[in-house]
Amino acid sequence: MLRNIILAASVILISACSNTPDWDYDKSVKFTNYKTFSWSADADLKNNGGNAYQINDLMEKRVRNAIIEAMLKHNIKLVESENADVLVNYHASVDSKIEADSFNTSYSARWNYWGFGYQTQTHAREYDVGTLVIDVIDKASNQLVWRGAKEGRLRNKQTPEQRTTSVNKTVFAILENFPPVEVH
């Protein structure tokens, strides 16, 4: 019994840690020079492998609005492409995963069988995991200088407000480390 509780607590702890955004960036870049951004020509959820029910024009709008808000919080504003310091690209993917839970349900004896035992039940569920990736490209060099990504379980049957809140939280979590703090 104690072993099952410890196992369940470990699974919960591991799953909680997996929702942390992942970042990578070029340490040679001086990010404080970036004051403006524009959209990359490739910035589109649907054209980059997003084919799930939730990848649509409404979600596209939510992602763009959340990126604009998050960048403004870092004092980087949206401008026309010719005036931008950096280009922002984003894309999403959706993968199906299977989650299985096994647990002991009871002790029992069988007819015409001497002895006791326990029964193990396994339940499997398929669910969708979405990953949103945001790239920042230096416009002058056309080089990727920063990338952030976050994955999370997709939920169906949400209101538009719940979807907007979810997108905002995801985008803000990804862009929390942009621009990265420069250590000298």
Rank of each mutant, 00 (worst) to 15 (best):
S96A: 13
N56A: 04
K35I: 08
E151V: 00
N168F: 00
A70Q: 06
D42Y: 12
R147S: 12
P21F: 14
G130R: 01
R125I: 01
N83H: 11
I14M: 14
L58S: 14
V11C: 10
W146T: 06
S28V: 07
A109F: 07
R163K: 12
F116D: 07
Y90I: 08
R163P: 10
T105Y: 06
K35A: 09
N65S: 14
R153L: 13
F31E: 07
W146C: 02
I98W: 09
R147N: 09
D101P: 00
A9T: 11
K35N: 12
D138H: 05
S102W: 02
F31A: 03
E176Q: 13
N48M: 04
N48I: 00
V145A: 02
A9N: 04
V94Y: 03
E161F: 08
A109S: 14
A173Q: 09
R62Q: 15
K157P: 00
N65F: 07
Y107K: 10
K46H: 04
Q143F: 05
H184K: 15
K139S: 08
R3T: 14
C17D: 08
K77V: 12
R155D: 07
N177I: 02
A41K: 14
D85V: 02
V181K: 15
S93W: 01
V171Q: 04
N51S: 13
T165M: 13
T165F: 09
Y34N: 06
D101T: 12
M71G: 03
S15Q: 12
T20A: 12
T36C: 08
Q143L: 11
T32I: 02
I5R: 10
L13C: 13
K150P: 00
T170P: 00
Y113Q: 13
T105G: 07
L2F: 09
Y34C: 06
F172P: 01
N33L: 10
W111V: 10
L175P: 00
K97Y: 14
G130L: 03
N89V: 03
I12H: 09
M59E: 05
Y90F: 15
T170L: 04
H74S: 15
L175Q: 01
G115W: 12
S96N: 15
T122K: 01
F178C: 05
R153G: 08
I5S: 10
P180A: 02
K46A: 13
L72Y: 13
M59D: 04
K97G: 01
R110N: 13
T165L: 15
V167I: 14
S166I: 02
K61P: 01
D101Q: 12
V171H: 03
N104S: 13
Q162I: 01
V167L: 02
